[in-house]
Amino acid sequence: MDGKVILLADDDMDDTEMFCEALAEIDENAICHCAENGSEALKILSSLDKNPGVIFLDLNMPIMNGWDCLKRLKSDDRYKEIPVIMISTSSHKNDMETASKLGALCYFVKPNNFNDLKEILRTITSNLQNGVNNLVQSLKDAGFKNIFVCGEK
């Protein structure tokens, strides 16, 4: 696979480490840029030569949370077409609905199991090049219990 570029914004270092390890195991060519908050994610994004194939945003982060970062991304012509996946430990229906209203591709509850995370990331990264519609369909077809696919594309 040609190097997929992913941006992850999450202030929990344990979750970030698990995410990066899972990603490295499924695709050694993937490049993951990590930020500790939404503000740092936007700075990293503006410094990249090429937009990432997908952005993962944690909801609860200091300085700029995931909601505020998502709003900024979707209001900026340079970034609004990048698929954004919201991640959180919260499984509140309100959060899932908000993610959909603000333009996120999907929302998933952080799995505690490393293998579950690997399967989610495998499904996402292996379908990135096929376009957003196919990615959404692949997530639905996979039937993950902890993923809410936002709005029909």
Rank of each mutant, 00 (worst) to 15 (best):
A9M: 02
A24T: 11
I44E: 04
D10S: 00
L45E: 06
D15Y: 01
E40W: 07
D14S: 07
A30D: 05
D10H: 01
T16L: 05
D10E: 05
E21I: 13
L42Y: 08
K50F: 14
H33R: 15
E36Y: 01
E25G: 10
A35M: 11
A30C: 12
D12N: 14
D11W: 04
P52F: 06
A30H: 12
E17C: 12
E40D: 10
F19C: 02
D15M: 03
A35Q: 10
M18P: 00
A24H: 11
H33D: 08
I26E: 03
A41K: 14
I44Q: 05
A30M: 12
A35S: 11
D14T: 02
S39F: 10
M13R: 05
D27A: 10
K43R: 15
L42Q: 14
A35R: 02
C34V: 15
K43P: 06
E21M: 15
D10M: 03
D27T: 11
C20P: 11
D49E: 14
E28Y: 00
A24P: 00
A41W: 07
E36D: 04
A22D: 15
L48M: 13
N51G: 03
D10R: 01
V54Y: 07
A24C: 12
I31W: 06
D14P: 07
V54A: 05
K43W: 08
C20S: 13
L23E: 07
M13L: 06
D14V: 04
M13W: 03
G53C: 04
D27L: 00
S47Q: 15
T16D: 00
H33K: 13
